[in-house]
């Protein structure tokens, strides 16, 4: 028998994504959302307490000499089924986390509820790419490649032009393209490899070293610059190291100031839930949207549109325009 809470839980099962703020561990985000979902689920109207028939002695009867059987049947609520005794209906919700984001980075974090965890595994079994924006700054080098670390080196950056930066980025992308071919387990001299390459399907199966499949500079204003990266099997530390190595390649040094994920597989910034919307009704709405989009995607072939991704600059630009009008 489905209680209201169970029915609500059925509607909560699926995938959704949240915007993880920087400075917060992903586990904290996940636990907070689980607590919110539990609160929402247990706030659903409880089952009415069932009644049971019991034989009671009337309060006035003298128990000393019961000549007549002084019991009567009465229907009383079975208190052992009372919500205060049984506890809340849901005490755990299975909330799975997609590709992790470390504490210092922010951005799209995919979460799965209930049987959505299976879909989450399937999602990462396919080769999904992720987009990041990296903010870097020339002039210093630190021990952990981010601006919070201990400074180990300082350098000049006057000689760096956008042209030089683009050349380095192109070189890096070429090297990664080679790695992509190397890690795809197909013989390069075969017809199969040709067909896969023609359809753009070449790539590593499962685990591999991080591979950057796309790399471009979207903002350059020395000493700060912003890169947009599309990659496979990465972690955030690796991306910071990439920024560091770009600095070295340019005969200078650089640190990464922010790592922000703008897309994880099909989840983009448009459908993320920001911090104030991590509640059960909003999550339910997001999951409904996800199921709807899956239905429509079945009819139209998926294609990744470049225009859907928004960079920080575009967001800010739009906010500024809206603010001015």
């Amino acid at each position: 028998m489905a209680t209201p809470a169970i029915r609500m839980f059925r509607r909560l099962e699926g995938l959704f994504c949240v915007y993880k703020p920087s400075g917060v561990h992903w586990k904290l985000v996940r636990d907070g959302i689980e607590a919110n979902l539990l609160k929402g689920l247990n706030a659903a109207p409880p089952q009415p307490v069932p009644h049971q028939v019991r034989f009671l002695t009337p309060p006035g009867a003298d128990t000393e000499e019961p000549r007549q059987p002084a019991l009567y049947a009465a229907s009383v609520p079975a208190l052992s089924r009372h919500p205060l005794v049984t506890g809340p209906e849901f005490q755990h919700v299975k909330v799975g986390v997609g590709h992790r984001l470390d504490a210092a980075s922010s951005g799209v974090l995919v979460l799965a509820v209930g049987n959505g965890n299976r879909a989450l595994n399937d999602l990462y079994a396919t080769r999904v790419t992720r987009d990041y924006t990296l903010e870097g700054e020339f002039g210093t080098a630190t021990d952990n490649f981010s601006h919070t670390g201990r400074v180990v080196e300082r350098s000049t950056y006057g000689h760096i032009t956008q042209d030089k930066l683009d050349r380095v980025l192109a070189m890096l992308q070429g090297a990664n393209q080679k790695a992509l071919l190397m890690y795809s387990n197909v013989d390069m001299q075969s017809q199969e490899a040709y067909e896969m390459a023609a359809r753009g399907l070449l790539g590593p199966e499962g685990k591999s070293v991080p591979i950057l499949t796309g790399l471009r500079c979207i903002h350059f204003q020395p000493p700060s610059f912003t890169l947009e990266v599309r990659c496979l099997n990465e972690n955030q530390k690796y991306l910071r190291k990439v920024v560091h190595e770009i600095g070295l390649e340019l005969r200078s040094t650089s640190v990464c100031k922010a790592v922000r994920r703008t897309r994880d597989g099909p989840f983009t910034l448009q459908d993320v839930l920001t911090r104030h919307r991590w509640t059960a009704p909003d999550v339910m709405e997001a999951i409904r949207q996800y199921h709807l989009s899956k239905k429509t995607r079945r009819h139209t072939h998926p294609q990744i549109k470049d225009s859907t991704f928004q960079t920080k600059e575009e967001d800010k630009e739009r906010a500024r325009q809206q603010h001015e009008t």
């Binding site: 915007y19 922010s106 993320v272 967001d315 800010k316 906010a319 809206q322 603010h323």
Partner: peptide
């Protein structure tokens, strides 16, 4: 002196 939507959009860029 901005709209709520702008504020929420801004939160996604942090």
């Amino acid at each position: 002196l901005a709209t709520l939507e702008d504020f929420y959009l801004f939160q996604k860029t942090l």
